[in-house]
């Protein structure tokens, strides 16, 4: 699943550790999501959307398989 997490984080000048603290997850979780090695759970995706004040669809987009 593709996402804009890195761009959104950079726009706010947050480090991965800062974003992780806001989300209550580890820094490696943020890193794995950003590098698209890990897809977050639905509650975490909602948490990410809330932190950035956006909707999930504005941050995440389906990958090739989900897009069919």
């Amino acid at each position: 699943m593709k996402n804009r997490l890195r761009v959104l984080r950079a726009e706010r000048d947050w480090s991965q550790a800062e974003l992780a603290a806001r989300l209550g997850v580890s820094r490696q979780t943020v890193n794995a999501i950003e590098t698209e090695r890990y897809d977050p759970s639905l509650p975490l995706a909602f948490g990410i959307a809330r932190v950035f004040g956006l909707t999930i669809e504005q941050i995440f987009e389906p990958g090739e398989i989900a897009a069919g």
């Binding site: 950079a10 480090s15 698209e36 090695r37």
Partner: peptide, 25 residues
Amino acid sequence: YSSRAGQSFGPHQGGSGQSLGSHQG
């Protein structure tokens, strides 16, 4: 799942010329 060598973690992560490999598009 750990960060790969050469990746930084600051707010401007993904600095000039950083390559993220085949899983990142």
